Amino acid sequence: MDVERVRRWIPGVAWANLVVQIGIIITGGAVRLTGSGLGCSTWPNCEPGQFTPQLRDATDFHGAIEFGNRALAAVVFVVALSLVVLLVVAGRKQPHRRRRGLEALAAGIAAGVLIQAVVGGMTVWFELHPALVGSHFLLSGVLVAASSYLLSRLREGDGPPRPLAAEGLGPVRTLVVVLMLVTAVLVVLGVIVTGAGPHSGDQDVGYRFAVDPVSVARVHAGAAWAFTATVIALLVLLHRARANVGAGAELTRARRRTWVLLAVTLAQGVVGYVQYFTGLPELLVGIHLFAAAVLIAAVTFTVTGLRVREPVPATETLQAA
């Protein structure tokens, strides 16, 4: 196999990995929004002694939706495993360019997909326990972040990370820490809001979390405003900074990624408020879920855009961190 062809495939497969990681969140949301969480009564089979769902009439669509989500999970694993194979093959054929850190990260993503499948099975076995349903989404969020980070690392060198070569970026590290913490809080609160509302995923039990949905939604909105303020503060800091000679491109990249993050944030906020004031229609809740996955990716790209990693000498074995 031509090693250069393998290397050309790696970025495309890495992007495909991110796309399917977000896609599984969308189909998982469809399972939840249609009340199809127990459309398949067992796992790994859909029904006892039967791998596929029983489709007798139009009322059996829950099984088809749940099985479709499981089928996509298999695709997600194949894509993740393909990325591992490509990275390992490229590294073994050219040891001086091997990136063991990326291989380990890709392997971790593939392992995470398998863990996700087990969590999905446990969710069925324990009849949609809210903690398992919530952790199912949170694990997908971690996999989206890891997949986005891997894409960023593919474009970087393997030298030690350094700050952007610009003046006036003193508080940037503090803002990055705040941004990541608020992102985690925002996502977790979103899981609680969904579990406390009418789209918990179970048609028989509408509200899986025993908390006041209005109160927790307001707390979630407060976290969203804190997140937005942090992104704006970061953007202002980047635009007030002055790049050193020859380092304008890296500052421009950081500004561009942060603008994209702000755009995604504002769009997500609009959808969130519209769905809240229109009675949580399923379509808008699904869009909000999709935007949450995109937001996680955008945060990851923004954070990795605030540092630079130079190539190491070609004579060294590449050890990506």
Rank of each mutant, 00 (worst) to 15 (best):
M1A: 12
R5S: 14
R8W: 08
L18N: 12
I22G: 11
I22V: 14
I24T: 09
I26P: 06
G28R: 00
V31D: 02
C46T: 13
G49L: 11
Q50M: 13
Q50L: 12
P53M: 03
Q54F: 14
D57W: 06
D60W: 04
A64W: 04
E66T: 07
E66N: 13
G68H: 07
L72K: 07
V76P: 02
V76W: 06
V78D: 00
V88C: 05
G91E: 08
Q94H: 12
R97N: 11
R97Y: 06
R99E: 12
R99T: 10
G101Y: 05
I109A: 13
I109F: 10
G112A: 05
Q116G: 11
V119F: 03
G121E: 13
M122D: 13
A131Q: 12
V133Y: 00
G134V: 00
S135W: 13
S135K: 00
H136K: 01
F137S: 06
L138I: 10
L138E: 06
V142I: 14
L143V: 05
A145V: 09
A146G: 02
S147A: 13
L150V: 08
L151V: 12
L151I: 15
R155I: 11
R155M: 13
G157C: 12
G157H: 07
G159C: 11
G159H: 05
P163S: 07
L169G: 03
P171I: 11
L179F: 06
L179Y: 03
L186Q: 15
V187W: 06
V187I: 14
G190P: 04
V191Q: 04
V191W: 02
V191K: 00
A196W: 08
P198D: 15
G201L: 07
Y207T: 04
Y207R: 14
P213C: 05
A217G: 15
A221S: 14
G222C: 10
A224M: 07
A226F: 05
F227H: 08
F227T: 03
T228Q: 08
A229R: 02
A233C: 01
L234K: 07
A241M: 01
A243I: 09
N244A: 15
L251I: 12
L262G: 07
L262F: 09
A263H: 10
T265N: 10
G269F: 04
G272R: 07
G272A: 09
V274C: 03
Y276T: 04
F277N: 14
L284M: 04
I287N: 01
I287H: 03
H288W: 02
F290I: 02
A291P: 01
V294G: 09
L295N: 08
A297K: 05
V299H: 09
F301C: 05
V308K: 06
E310G: 07
T317L: 14
A320P: 06
A320E: 15
